[in-house]
C-alpha cells in the first residue's frame, strides 16, 4: 500500500531462521487470487508454520506468541529466497509489517518489498545477533528506523547503524510514489531509445 515513510519506532517480531523462502512466506496454493487483497495474503502469512492443517494456530510459532508484535519483522540471513512471487511481499504488508530487518535479502524479494512500501533494512550480522538477543531478553524492546537519516537503532542497547537506500527509492518511499508513476513520464526517452535501436 502506498504510504509515506519517515521514522518508525516499534517492537519487533523475531524469526531467527536462515534462508526463509517465499514458499514459506506464502505457500503456492494461496497464489490463485486474481486481486491484490493484502488482508487475504496477510492472513495466510507463514501459513504452514503458523497453522496446523485444520487451521489451529501452532503455539510454538512466533506470530502466535502474544509476547511479540509490532511493525518490524526481524529475520535470519537470506530472507525471501526462491520464487519471485510478489504475493510474499503483499502478505508481509498485509499482516502489518512496515520494515523487515535482516543481514541479507534475496534480490527479487527485496525489490518486491520496496515496490510495496515495505522497507528491507540490511544490518551487519553482529547487529542482527545482538538484536535477536535483545528481543529474546525483552519482547517489548523497540527499534527505531529513521528513513530520512537512513539509520536503524536498537533502542535497548543504543547501538545504531546506517543502512543503504538509494536516493531515488528513498524519495519514492518518503513521498508515496511508485516506479510506474515515474516511468509513465518517460515516454519520450523510451521512443528515442527505440528509434536509436532500429537505425
Amino acid at each position: 500500500m502506498k504510504q509515506k515513510f519517515d521514522i518508525i519506532e516499534s517492537t519487533c517480531v523475531p524469526l531467527p531462521l536462515e534462508n526463509v523462502d517465499t514458499d514459506q512466506i506464502i505457500p503456492a496454493r494461496f497464489l490463485k487470487a486474481t486481486t491484490r487483497e493484502e488482508s487475504f495474503f496477510g492472513e495466510n502469512l507463514f501459513r504452514d508454520w503458523r497453522y496446523d492443517p485444520d487451521g489451529t494456530p501452532k503455539r510454538d510459532f512466533v506470530l502466535n506468541d502474544p509476547r511479540y508484535g509490532g511493525e518490524i519483522l526481524v529475520a535470519g540471513r537470506n530472507f525471501g529466497s526462491g520464487s519471485s512471487r510478489e504475493h510474499a511481499a503483499w502478505a508481509i504488508a498485509g499482516y502489518g509489517f512496515k520494515v523487515v530487518i535482516s543481514s541479507f535479502f534475496a534480490d527479487i524479494h527485496k525489490n518486491n518489498e520496496l515496490n510495496n512500501f515495505v522497507l528491507p533494512v540490511v544490518v551487519t550480522p553482529d547487529f542482527l545477533a545482538e538484536l535477536f538477543a535483545t528481543i529474546a531478553a525483552d519482547p517489548k524492546a523497540k527499534v527505531r528506523v529513521d528513513v530520512p537519516n537512513q539509520t536503524v537503532t536498537n533502542l535497548s542497547t543504543g547501538r545504531s547503524e546506517a543502512f543503504e537506500l538509494n536516493p531515488y527509492k528513498k524519495y519514492c518511499l518518503m513521498n508515496a510514489l511508485d516506479d510506474i508513476d515515474f516511468l509513465m513520464l518517460q515516454k519520450d526517452k523510451i521512443e528515442a531509445w527505440e528509434a536509436g535501436c532500429s537505425k
Partner: peptide, 13 residues
C-alpha cells in the same frame, strides 16, 4: 525474474 509490480511496469512502458 521480476515481481508483479515490475510486470506492470513493463506492460505499461
Amino acid at each position: 525474474g521480476i515481481g508483479t509490480s515490475e510486470v506492470e511496469m513493463v506492460l505499461a512502458s
